[in-house]
Design a protein around this nucleic acid. Structure first.
Lengths: 156, 156
DNA sequence: TTAACTTTGACTAATATTGACTATTATTAT
DNA sequence: ATAATAATAGTCAATATTAGTCAAAGTTAA
């Protein structure tokens, strides 16, 4: 599924570490050298793939001994998590961010695979077929929030 | 059916791979070069020959390391009913008519109760929160059709 | 002849890569 | 202590690298 460009490879590398360690701390220049890219590419990877919406917290420090630390965030259980997600969605959400969010719901066993795919099918750009991008993202947000609220009482 | 034009040839080429691999991932420009055609012809081939109705799922990514992925899926038995429903929905559907439709899907065991409720939650007037009634019904129609198309197949 | 299908290419959109410049923190020299 | 310097990381915009859309033009089949 991954590995066609450097960003994907770096993403996979970091997530592999995070699969075991709950947090990973890197030196930007070292990773850049390891993957033979410019240091700012690390920022790009983090910005596009390790957002809070996807359940990651990033901290860093400059200067000597500087680092970038990525931590996997627990969105707590049930109700808190749903509230948090609704907060994160806000008034609109892109298809890309939505995918990450639904993935997280699935990973956390809030929904099953069938439901996850149903949600994605219901809210894809192709399905919604709304010319105006902003409106599309607003409606996607509405639908997702509706579903999340529904999950509050549907569970169990 | 074979080899009369470039589109047919490209179709055959991809299907030959799919006969063994369940999925094929290509770089658009490479295939275009291989068959000596413009890149957008690949899109034409996919659009006309690898539709979901024929049992193919297509995903793609742009940018560096981009690709087009075609996956063969297993079509289910309810396709005719789904087609009929999509016809019936047309361009828009009220919440009331939708309820009847989802009920039928449930009665016919196409979806389970949880999924039915999820669909209703996703498409209720309250969730969509669109002032304009006509637009609301249009978008509800789009979402339902997207879901119905999703119900056509199963990943292998 | 006409309607459907195919081919083409100009324009658009999404995503990734790069590097110059900036900001912050630590270390060293005075 | 303070100032200078070194060692980090951050930002942002330009450029590169893909794929998508659409409509005009060409071709084929009924």
């Amino acid at each position: 599924m991954q590995g066609r460009n450097i960003s994907d490879i770096i993403e996979a590398y970091l997530k592999q570490i995070l699969a075991e360690s709950a947090r990973v701390e890197i030196k930007r220049s070292e990773i850049a050298e390891l993957f033979n890219c410019v240091p700012s590419q690390i920022n790009y990877v983090i910005k596009t793939r390790f957002t809070i919406q996807r359940g990651y917290l990033v901290q860093s420090k400059r200067g000597g001994g500087g680092y970038i630390r990525i931590e996997k965030v627990k969105l707590l259980d049930d109700r808190d998590m749903l509230d948090t997600m609704i907060q994160l969605i806000g008034g609109q959400i892109s298809q890309r961010d939505e995918l990450a969010l639904v993935q997280k719901l699935y990973d956390d066993h809030v929904i099953e695979r069938k439901e996850a795919n149903l949600i994605l099918a219901a809210t894809s750009r192709e399905t919604l077929a709304i010319a105006d991008r902003q409106l599309e993202e607003q409606i996607r947000a509405n639908i997702l929030i509706g579903i999340l609220n529904h999950l509050r009482y549907e569970r169990e």
